[in-house]
Structures are given as structure tokens and as C-alpha cells.
Design a binder for these strands. Structure first.
Lengths: 355, 355
DNA sequence: ATGAAAGCGCTAACAG
DNA sequence: CTGTTAGCGCTTTCAT
């Protein structure tokens, strides 16, 4: 596709082609070239074209550091990671980074990553990255209900994009997956199979996705005309272990559920274990629906019913949104959600009649 | 600890403290300040101190972009990811990034991450990052036996550090964990328990770690005076599924092993499954030793015998090594290995006598 | 619509 | 030892 770039120089860094080279080759001045490249309105269409063609042909690309010194923009997107159990165990991160990197690079952007240990440290990391011009804006993974990052960045007018939604959308751009729809569909699917006692295990309640998924579950129950038994609802479960514990509670209740909907995939795996420990067969004695998608399929047996989330695509979307934001687009126009695909891989079944 | 940095400005980017500000405040010229900050030898100790104190106090930090335009150095470490099954499923990446970020930031460095899809794309990613001065050097995860990255970067004299060793060490810096020792110890441990038929399932053979671990296994067998049965040796297994398949082959052999050593942790999980499918009890009918450490313990039951690898620490080490390399230290002095801790969590046991 | 010139924040000869 | 003077590659007034 792209014409192959020249090889690296045998020694040291390449002596790049500069704006002056292009200007000289075209018999114009640097300023004309600069304005042509940056889409200023006072440049004739013909010269703009000549310049762009020459730039392409001479393989000229403005040095972002040199631009940064005047403009403050360095064509790099910032990502600040906060380590938690939640994310650690999954393909999520690698795929997500790949998506971000891909989305960024198509527009000539690059990715700067930092990790924050704890909350006090968090704002410092942002400040440093911003102060030093290491990032023109930030991608914030896992939007929280009360998100300190949003407060910090919004107040200071630093551009950012959320992975996840926000109750107060002022100044927020985001990409998110409509997990609530999936939860709702899961309930309806189970209700159609005849289930009436449906349990729910929610994810980390500090995150907005959990609020939304809970609402989706409730909406599904309401639509199916089913009642909510508070004893069959658990929350704040994000790991397999959490799922095991939560499911144990539900299954050992006086009147246990015949189906359980989980907001998080690994939690569903925990439910499998709890069920198996009690001699229950998934898809027969108990129906389980998990969310998110453990892609390699090596964990679940029998197959987990799941809604796939494409982390890579999320990364691409977020990078693109942030870049558009940096180009001056209004936040209101930069909000996007995507649906989740329902996949029953056989973990749901009819209501058990031995009761 | 650190005195809290000033808040972000209400609007736009902070008007930073420049070198001129410092110079003016001290009644000297920019060049003196510059040289004092960069440790030039022709600056009196007294002024160096005055400058450093003033810089600290005025919260001055040279703008890396401005420096870069002259020096080419932007104080940022490059990391190019190649997605593979191998890495996807694990905490590895998050911890590793955290370590890199931590190691880098203590020296005022930052992390630039990119992802490469395939081999053709790979060199392009390096070139762009390097050409555009987005990275002063690179961290290369998972050293390979014939590593195209090493060839590319060594030839062009781009600084880099390997996670993993290299047969031809010319110009290479690295950090690695001595997995071969762990493999050896595992064999000796099993031999001591009386095992004579010990199988081995190696990891991805394109990586140097696999070569080394194989050698470790062989060394252990030799030291224990045991013979190698080629039928009990498998390789190129990196996932649970791979482990399941490989173990099936070993266990279904005419004269099956009483113990299996795995080079990769998830593979050991696969062995568990294959064993369970055949009605074998781990630690009783079959001993299994895995490598690497699935930290959360939620996967293995009964506990897997494992050797922990601290991904975070590896990140810190690698960042530190690369920064030292960038400061001009010779590659030969920048090679470091760390031992692996042996932990028998109960997955090994005596030789079964029902045979 | 384009050129001339100044300057961003910093480093690096070259003087003295 | 320190100051003077040029730039680095690029953007951005201000003229024309």
C-alpha cells in the first residue's frame, strides 16, 4: 500500500527533510508551505495541491517537536492506566492498546501511556503529562459515576474522551457499549424460556457501566412482568472469585433462582463453579448469562453465553473521537455508542422442573 | 512526599517557567543555566548548585520538545507491542506497563506505546517512531531466537533493551528471568520424590526463553541421571488448549509419564484438564509443575506449582536499563538476570504405584 | 495570495 | 569559568 519508507540511516538519526527543503524545491518560502500544509484559508488551491504533492513525494512530515514548541500540540494522545483487579486478567488491555495505536497512527498521532498507582498519584500523572506537553488530550478508560478525572480535566479545559458514559455530559465526549440493552435482552430471553426467578450479579458499582446494566436488568424484568427479589440481586462482583461468592449466596437462598444474569464475564465463570459445586448443570438446572466475552473460549465449559465487546474497535473509536475533539469539534457531536451482540452459546435452557 | 505541583491553569496550557526566567532571576545567561542543568564540566560547583536550587524552587523543567529539536532526545521510551495469543490472556501487560511507567517517570522519562499488526508492519512502526523522535530508544518484549527487531535496531544503532536474552549478545542489553534454573529445580524436586518418567512441555520455540527452559529441563534430567524419552517431550505450547492437547499425547503414550513439567503456566492448566479427563488426580496420580505464575489463583484447583515472575519489576528494570543505555553506558554493563522463586503449592506428589 | 522577518525554548560553538 | 551569538524546524504576525 503505502510506498515503503526509506531505510534507517546506518548511523544516528536520519537527517530529515525539512520544511525549507520543500520550500526550496518548490521555489517558495517556508511560510507558504507551512500555511498550505496547515490548511490556512489564504492559500490558493493550486499551490496547496502543489505543496501537498511535493510533501508526499519528498516524504516530508513536519517534526512534531518543532511544531509543539510554538503550538503546544505534539500529536500524541495520553492514556493513564489505573491498575485494578478488574482489568488485569484480560485480553482487554492489549486489544485496546492496539486499537488506540491504530486509530491514532492513521492520523499521524502517537500514544503516550502512563500508570498511576493510587488516587493521590493520579492527578499528578495527568499534570505532568499535560504540563510537559506529552499529551494533547486524554483517553479515560472505565468511566466512573463520580469520576475524579472528569472533574479534574473538565475544570481545566483539557481535552479528553471517555470510554463509558457520564450522567452529567457537560463537556464530555465518549464511546460506550450499550450493555444495558444486552442485560435487558438476556432477561427477556430467559423469561421467554419460562424463567421467573432470575438473579442478577452486577459489576463494580463505582463505574457507570454497572449503573446502566442494572437499569437494563430492571427494564427487562419490568418488560417481562417479573418481580425483583432483592435476595436474588448482588453487586460489586468483578472477578471469578467474586462471582463464586455472590452465586453461592443466591443459590443458597431459601428460594433460589433458576437463572442468573451477570454483568461481567469472569463473574459468570465464578457462577459456573458455585453451580458445579452444588451439583447443578449449567443450561439445565441453572441458566447463566454473562457479559463481555472471554474470547478464547478456554475458560468456559460448557460454553458461556456472552455478548462480545470488541476492545480493539473501542480503541479505534476513542482515538478517532479524541483527535476530532483536538481539531476543535464540539463535545456534543462526539458521543457514540455501539450495540452488543447477543450470543447464546448454550448456557441458558428451560426452567428445571424438579422443584 | 513530593511538594505538590501547582494546579492546572483554569484555561489552556500553563505558561511554563522557561530557562530565561531562571536565568533572569539568577542574573546569568540562559547558556550558563543550560550547561549547569546538563552537567557540563566547565561550570563551577557553586553556580551549578545555585541553578539547581533555583530550578527546583521555581519549578522549572526544560521543555523536552524544545530540547529535542536540538538534541534529538525527547526523554521518552518506545514500546512496540506485537499481539499474540501468548500475551493476550494475562496480567502480564498491565503490570509490565506499570513497571515501565514507574521506572521511566522517576528519571523524568515517559512511555510511548505502539502496536504492530504483522511482521511487515513491524519495521515501519519502529521507523516512524524513531524518525519522528517519538522515542529515544526501545524496549523489546519477548526476545526471540532470531529476532528481526534486534537485527533492525542493532544495524542502525538505535538504542534498545531486551526482555529476554540473545545468543549473539553484540550490542544487546537485557533483563531476563532465569527460567532454566526453575525448570532444573523442578526436575530435581520430582526426581527426589522418586519420579523417573518425567515429561516436558515447552513454550513457544521461537522465543529464547523456550530454548533456555528446555536446556534447564535437560540439565535437570542429566543431573538426576534420568533418560529422556522423546515421546514425553512436547513443545510450542502456550495456551491452555495447547497444554490440553500436548498432555493428551503424553498421557496416552504407551508408557505415560508420572510427572510433567511445563514451561508456561496456562499450559499447566491445560494439563490439569487433560489429566482430569482421564480420571487422574493432580498431586497423586500425576505431578504437574508449571512456570510463570497465574497470580490470582482463581484458575488452578488444586493449586498449581509455580515460579512467580514479577512483571512489574521487570518493567522497572528494563526502563532503568534503557535510560542508562541512553546516557551512554556500554551495553556490556547493562545485562541483568533475576532468579525465579520455587513454590510447591501441592501439585507434585510421590510416584503413583498403581501401574 | 505570498514573502520577509521575528521568535518559540533550548543547546552549542566560540570567545574571552 | 561565563557571556555572546547562532541557530534547530517550525509558526505567525505584518507587509505587500
Amino acid at each position: 500500500m503505502a510506498s515503503h519508507t526509506t531505510l534507517l540511516p546506518k548511523k544516528g538519526r536520519a537527517s530529515r527533510v525539512t520544511i525549507s527543503d520543500v520550500a526550496d524545491a518548490l521555489g517558495m518560502t517556508k511560510s507558504t508551505v507551512s500555511r498550505a500544509m496547515n490548511g490556512y484559508p489564504d492559500i490558493s488551491e493550486s499551490t496547496r495541491l502543489r505543496v501537498q504533492r511535493a510533501a508526499e513525494q519528498m516524504n516530508y512530515q513536519p517534526l512534531s517537536h518543532a511544531q509543539a514548541i510554538k503550538t503546544g500540540q505534539t500529536r500524541s494522545l495520553g492514556l493513564v492506566l489505573q491498575l485494578s483487579d478488574h482489568d488485569a486478567q484480560r485480553p482487554f488491555l492489549a486489544e485496546f492498546l492496539a486499537g488506540l495505536s491504530a486509530g491514532a497512527s492513521t492520523k499521524g498521532y502517537t500514544l503516550t501511556v502512563a500508570a498511576a498507582d493510587n488516587d493521590t498519584h493520579l492527578s499528578e500523572v495527568f499534570q505532568n503529562l499535560w504540563r510537559d506537553g506529552k499529551a494533547d488530550g486524554f483517553i479515560l478508560p472505565r468511566a466512573m459515576v463520580k469520576d475524579p478525572r472528569v472533574r479534574l480535566l473538565r475544570d481545566t479545559e483539557v481535552p479528553f474522551v471517555l470510554f463509558g458514559r457520564q450522567a452529567d455530559p457537560t463537556g464530555c465526549c465518549w464511546f460506550d457499549i450499550r450493555g444495558e440493552d444486552a442485560m435487558r435482552d438476556a432477561v427477556l430471553h430467559l423469561a421467554e424460556l419460562g424463567h421467573r426467578r432470575i438473579g442478577f450479579i452486577n459489576g463494580g458499582e463505582i463505574y457507570t457501566y454497572a449503573q446502566l446494566r442494572r437499569e437494563g436488568f430492571l427494564a427487562g424484568m419490568a418488560a417481562a412482568g417479573l418481580e425483583i427479589d432483592p435476595k436474588l440481586v448482588a453487586g460489586d462482583s468483578v472477578t471469578r472469585r467474586d462471582g463464586d461468592a455472590a452465586a453461592a449466596r443466591l443459590l443458597d437462598a431459601a428460594n433460589p433462582p433458576t437463572a442468573i444474569v451477570c454483568a461481567v464475564d469472569h463473574v459468570a465463570l465464578g457462577v459456573y463453579r458455585a453451580a458445579t459445586d452444588r451439583g447443578l448443570v449449567i443450561g439445565h438446572d441453572l441458566s447463566v448469562t454473562g457479559y463481555d466475552g472471554i474470547e478464547d473460549g478456554s475458560h468456559a465449559q460448557p460454553p458461556l453465553t456472552t455478548f462480545a465487546v470488541d476492545s480493539r474497535q473501542a480503541g479505534v473509536e476513542l482515538a478517532t473521537l479524541l483527535i476530532r475533539r483536538l481539531s476543535g469539534e464540539a463535545p456534543e457531536t462526539l458521543r457514540k455508542t455501539a450495540g452488543a451482540t447477543f450470543l447464546d452459546r448454550g448456557s441458558t435452557g428451560p426452567v428445571p422442573n424438579h422443584n
